[in-house]
């Protein structure tokens, strides 16, 4: 299982298919921003988004979207606030802000927010 730091350091890509993104690390998702939607409710009773943490990856389904590639345009990004599994969720220092770029052939480029792109937490 890869850590988030390994993923960022080695530029390991995630994947996306339809409305599903697959992140190559395990993490709790606190917030997702896609288009104008700011999603913080990941419960099964809400139809915004759901995520699952498996042994080797974390997957998020954006339930309001059919095809992410069609709705997130070339220069737009998906933004996530995550806490890597095993880290203390209540320590704000562990909250990582990630920016996801949808690239060709289902590749999902993952980078940490560095102030270049506006990301209001």
């Amino acid at each position: 299982m890869r850590t988030l730091d390994e993923v960022l350091k080695n530029n390991i890509n995630g994947l996306y298919y339809g409305n599903r993104i697959i992140l190559p690390f395990r993490a709790e998702i606190l917030k997702a921003i896609i288009e104008k939607d700011i999603i913080t409710d990941f419960s099964t009773t809400h139809k915004g988004a759901q995520y699952n943490i498996t042994d080797k990856y974390t997957e998020i389904y954006f339930l309001e979207y059919k095809e992410l590639a069609e709705e997130v345009s070339k220069y737009e990004t998906i933004k996530l606030v995550v806490v890597e599994e095993g880290k203390d969720l209540f320590d704000f220092g562990n909250h990582r802000r990630l920016i996801l770029h949808l690239k060709e052939k289902h590749y999902l480029k993952i980078e940490e927010a560095n102030g270049e792109i506006l990301f209001v937490e």
Partner: peptide, 13 residues
């Protein structure tokens, strides 16, 4: 410049 568009997250939406 595509870098500027990326920075501005330019979209027609």
């Amino acid at each position: 410049d595509s870098k500027i568009l990326e920075y501005n997250e330019f979209t027609f939406d």
